[in-house]
Design a protein around this nucleic acid. Sequence first.
DNA 1: TATAAATCCTACCACCGCGGTAGGAATAAG
DNA 2: CTTATTCCTACCGCGGTGGTAGGATTTATA
Lengths: 150, 150
Amino acid sequence: MMVSTKGRYALTVMVDLAKLSDGGYVSLSDIAERENLSMKYLESIISILNKGGLLQSLRGKNGGYKLARSPEEYSINEILLLTEGTLAPVNCIMQDGVQCEKAATCSTLPLWAGLDKVIEQYLSKITLDDIIKGNRKKMLGDYCDQCDSE
Amino acid sequence: MMVSTKGRYALTVMVDLAKLSDGGYVSLSDIAERENLSMKYLESIISILNKGGLLQSLRGKNGGYKLARSPEEYSINEILLLTEGTLAPVNCIMQDGVQCEKAATCSTLPLWAGLDKVIEQYLSKITLDDIIKGNRKKMLGDYCDQCDSE
DNA sequence: TATAAATCCTACCACCGCGGTAGGAATAAG
DNA sequence: CTTATTCCTACCGCGGTGGTAGGATTTATA
């Protein structure tokens, strides 16, 4: 499992906020109820998104959260990277370019590096807007068996 | 982390066996020593490869393991899938097509399905032979900064 | 100004998979 | 019959995942 519930719920929250982004603040309890998720657990996740600058928050009554930018300005890669810490498929690939000491002679390293790039490339080109618009062609590519009806 | 040491070591073993495949059996202790890995831990991993039919084994003195087929007939996807159980990037994607009960209304599902396909596609096209030949162009694609020297 | 509704902060915890270790039984070559 | 090997079962510490609990702080509104 590359993406745990932390990252998945984070994306769910971002999508939820993007769907009803009318400029107002949305409370955490509303989101948790709509998405049927534990509010307390969501709290810790939304805190990461907030501190990372992806959200704006307002405390006190009628407070809540809203997107800091418009949906097409968030890549999925950015959201997942912030919450998960890393999206590397294996331990021996670090995100900051640090390498294993056996790197020079490791014959499997190019494979892992290639896999990492493929994943990053995919997640970087998809935006929050693609998700709320249901852009299946972009997300599923040639494998989308329903794209001809769109 | 999508691929744990179990899958990584499994691939290392397969690559090791592929590199010196002269038809004879190679002992586990030889592999462990060459790759500098715990022999006892490797034992449990190579057992999975053996039971899965990827290897042939011979017990007793001068026994060991060897590849059941030639290197170009193994996809990396096959090796990792067997040892890891699943390569799905998230919990809500099952490998046998089973779906979450919210699947019909889940707006993030196409993203995870697309990511899963991208990963599977990449790992399926690379073979054990590509790794021992060091086929960087195939593994690293456009990102290979050393491919022009080949 | 009191109250309610919300974010923010710190601490805690059960469970499970990962990454091994240990010891011995069965098998085959010499 | 000894030695080298695979094969099998059992065990275990550690850290991360997926939460829960409780309260402090901030803000809008009656």
